[in-house]
């Protein structure tokens, strides 16, 4: 093969790699693999060599296309007319919106590649009081600081249901029943009336007296009025303080169990310990991660059987800034394209 022929073959190959038909073929192949990936979840298609190679070829196609059909065509004018009848390069006008869009996808692909190669993800299962600096999982890595779980709590929605157990100190009987704020329950064939005067989901005492700090059932309390033949007596019942039984001379003892609703939020109170000192103290919640020293700590799991346990996810992803830059470029490029008036 002569030198001239070799150059012709390379040029043809580059033209093909830069061509829209090659792009459509790649998109179709990626689409089919994505569909297969969702239908066969046990096979990790998205991290396979084939899928990675297709993404690599997509990057090559975008780079060559951007160079040949946009930048080179703009710099050197005509003479770069594609062979497949594509209408994009009609001379020297540079379409910045198209250029931005192509560069955006390339940036996202490069950022994704960085995430795949350099990204770290590990879990940090902790019990209250425990501190760790070594993550678990396939990538298990050591952190340049320790994470101490100081406290863990689950916040629930108010279910609106309250269960009371009333015990007669004199007669010894005990009855468990459900009540609702504002309603009156009848016990012992109506001989005893129990009225829920007020419900405090998050009980505190402020300057005005008893009040609630929030609508979340953090410290549920009921103010009750128990009426029998001898008259009425008022009681306080606290879900978190079951040993509080009011005055010893009262005729009844009340214990209170609110039925919690669905989980509203998880709170992991953590301390980051660096060089033997607490560098920062903060609560990590779902949607409220903690960023420290290039790492991000997320609330990831809990154990319904162990209220002292919380699992955090730790990640470090150097690809994120590039991916986000690509997102921004893509949004600008496509908006520009959409708003451009057609001549």
């Amino acid at each position: 093969m002569t030198h001239h022929n070799k150059e012709g073959t390379v040029s043809k190959a580059l033209d093909f790699l830069a061509s829209p038909p090659f792009l459509y073929g790649l998109l179709l192949a990626l689409l089919l693999l994505c569909v297969a990936g969702t239908l066969l979840p046990k096979i990790d298609i998205y991290h396979s060599l084939l899928f990675t190679a297709l993404l690599g070829l997509l990057g090559i196609n975008l780079t060559l296309c951007t160079w040949q059909r946009q930048i080179h065509a703009w710099l050197y004018g005509k003479g770069q007319a594609p062979r497949d009848g594509v209408l994009l390069t009609r001379g020297v006008r540079l379409r910045l919106d198209v250029l931005l869009t192509h560069l955006a996808v390339l940036t996202i692909l490069i950022g994704g590649m960085l995430s795949a190669i350099l990204g770290l993800h590990g879990s940090l299962p902790l019990s209250v009081g425990e501190s760790k600096n070594m993550t678990e999982g396939p990538q298990g890595f050591r952190l340049p600081f320790s994470v101490k779980l100081e406290d863990f709590g689950i916040e629930y929605y108010d279910s609106g249901l309250h269960s009371l157990t009333v015990t007669s100190r004199r007669e010894g009987w005990s009855e468990k029943f459900d009540v609702q704020p504002g309603a009156t329950a009848l016990l012992r064939a109506g001989a005893i009336q129990i009225k829920v005067l007020e419900y405090f989901p998050d009980f505190i005492i402020d300057n005005q007296g008893p009040a609630t700090r929030s609508s979340a059932p953090q410290n549920p309390a009921l103010h009750l009025e128990i009426t029998d033949r001898e008259g009425s007596e008022k009681h306080w019942a606290f879900a978190r303080f079951p040993d509080f039984h009011g005055e010893a001379k009262s005729r009844y003892q009340v214990s209170y169990e609110p039925a919690f609703g669905k989980i509203k939020q998880f709170h992991s109170q953590v301390a980051i310990i660096q060089g033997g000192w607490v560098a920062v103290r903060r609560a990590i919640e779902v949607n409220q991660p903690l960023r420290w020293g290039g790492y991000t700590l997320y609330q990831a799991g809990y154990d319904p059987e162990n209220p002292q346990y919380s699992s955090l996810l730790v990640s470090r992803d150097p690809g994120v800034p590039l991916v986000y830059a690509g997102f921004l470029l893509l949004t600008v490029g496509l908006t520009w394209t959409f708003l451009r008036r057609k001549k």
């Binding site: 994505c34 569909v35 969702t38 998205y46 995430s115 997320y298 994120v320």
Partner: peptide, 18 residues
């Protein structure tokens, strides 16, 4: 912000990409 990864190949994400 919520799950610790901008792309997890979750079926909804993947079908949105498709």
């Amino acid at each position: 912000e919520a799950w610790g990864s901008y792309w997890s190949w979750d079926p909804k994400e993947t079908w949105s990409l498709i």
